[in-house]
Design a protein around this nucleic acid. Structure first.
Lengths: 208, 208
DNA sequence: CGGTAAATAGCCCGATGGGGCTAACTCGGG
DNA sequence: CCCGAGTTAGCCCCATCGGGCTATTTACCG
C-alpha cells in the first residue's frame, strides 16, 4: 500500500443513495468510505470520530440541511473538505452550500467517471467550479439579499396571504407590509407578488 | 432452488440509486435484478426483452416521466406490476402514477425492511395503499379537474402574467381570462392567483 | 459621532383583481 | 335531438395591489 486511501464520509438521508455511493466508491483502490450518516446531527458525530479526508454531503435533508451541516463541520475543522451532492439544483441551495464552505458541488445523476474525477480533484485541491455555476454565483452576488423581515414577508406572500393578513400576522400596519413588498419586488426584479412567489420557490429562497 | 426468484427491472435516471437498489435487492435470496434502465424509453426496451415480474420506477425523469412510462408498459402488458419510487411526493405525481396503472408507491428514503416487504407484497398481490395516501387520493378525486384551457391559464398565472397579458397571449379577451381564473380559483379551493400558483406547484399540476 | 440600512408608518392614485351575474356558441355523448 | 361542459364575452363594483413619495426610530458600522 504505497499511498494512503482517501477516507470518505457519506451524508445522505436516502439509504439507497448511501449504498449506491458506497458500492461505487469502495470499488476504487484509492478510496475508502469510513462512515455514513443519515442526518446532519449524525454527520457531525461521525466527522468528529473519523476525521475523514472528504465528506460527500446531500443538501436536502430533514431537520439540519446540508448547508447548515457543512457550516457546522467547518466551524470546528476549518480545513475540512466537503463536496455537495444535490438532486436538483436551485441556485440558492448551491450558493448557501458554497458560502457555508463546501469545496464543490455535483448533481446526483452524474456518471461515475466525473464523480470519481471530482472527488480526487477536490481532495488534491485542484477542483474548480464549472464556469456555468461560477457565472450563476456571480449573478447571485449581484442580486441584493433580502433582509430577515423581507424574507418573512416573502414567506407569507408565498402562502397567499394578503398585505393586510401579513400585517396582522406580524403585528405591523398594512402600510409597512406594502413597503416591504415593494422592496421585495424590486430586489427580486419582478412585477407582482405572484412572480415573487414563484421565483422565490424557484430560487429556493423559501421552502415549499 | 425451490421457488423461482422475483425478477426485477429498475428504472431510475440516477446511477447511484440504481446501484444502491441493486445491491440491496440482490442480497435477498428471493429477488434478482434482471435489468436496469436510466430513461423511460430504455425502460420500455428492457421490459420487452426481460418481461420482469415487477418494475421499480422512478417518477421524475427527463423526457418521459415515470407515469408515462408506466402507462406505456401497461398498454402493452396489462398485467405488468409497477411499483413507483418517488423522492418527494406531490399528490399529482402519485395520482398520475396510480392512474397510469402503478400498483403502489414508495418514498426513496424508506428503510430496507419496508421496501423489501412492499416489493414482496406487490408481487404477491396483497399490497394495499397506506391509509394516508388513499385518503389523499379520495380527496383528489373529489377535487374537480381543470379543463385544458384552464390548465393553460394556470401555467401563465404561475409565470406571473396579468389577466390582460394572458388574454393577448391566448388571443382572447381579458374578461374571458377573468372567467377562467374564477373557475380555477374555485376548483383549486383558493382565494387568489398567488395561492393558485403555489398550490399548482405544490400539487405538481404545473412544472416549475 | 456621523452615516447607512432596516423597520416602522403614513399619504395619494391609478391599475389590477376577484365576486356575482348573464349569455352566447360549439361540440360530443346519451 | 337535446343536455351539459367548455369556451367565449360582456357588465358592475369594490377590495386589493403596486408606484411614488416622505418621515421617524433604531441599530450597527466605520
Amino acid at each position: 500500500m504505497a499511498k494512503p486511501k482517501i477516507r470518505l464520509l457519506l451524508v445522505d438521508d436516502h439509504l439507497v443513495v448511501r449504498i449506491g455511493l458506497r458500492s461505487l466508491l469502495e470499488m476504487q483502490p484509492d478510496l475508502t468510505v469510513v462512515a455514513e450518516a443519515a442526518s446532519g446531527a449524525a454527520a457531525l458525530k461521525e466527522f468528529e470520530r473519523h476525521q475523514p479526508d472528504l465528506t460527500l454531503m446531500d443538501l436536502r435533508m430533514p431537520e439540519m440541511d446540508g448547508a447548515a451541516t457543512t457550516a457546522a463541520i467547518r466551524a470546528k475543522s476549518p480545513d475540512a473538505r466537503v463536496l455537495v451532492l444535490t438532486t436538483f439544483d436551485t441556485d440558492e441551495d448551491i450558493f448557501r452550500a458554497l458560502q457555508a464552505g463546501a469545496c464543490g458541488y455535483l448533481l446526483k445523476n452524474t456518471d461515475s467517471e466525473p464523480l470519481l474525477k471530482t472527488i480526487r480533484a477536490v481532495h488534491a485541491g485542484t477542483y474548480r467550479l464549472p464556469a456555468e455555476v461560477a457565472a450563476r454565483l456571480a449573478q447571485r452576488q449581484a442580486a441584493p439579499e433580502l433582509s430577515p423581515r423581507e424574507r418573512e414577508v416573502l414567506e407569507l406572500i408565498v402562502k397567499g396571504r394578503s398585505n393586510k393578513e401579513i400585517g396582522s400576522a406580524l403585528g405591523v400596519a398594512e402600510n409597512t407590509v406594502k413597503n416591504h413588498v415593494k422592496v421585495i419586488l424590486d430586489k427580486l426584479g419582478v412585477q407582482d407578488r405572484t412572480q415573487a412567489a414563484t421565483t422565490a420557490i424557484q430560487r429556493g429562497i423559501v421552502r415549499l
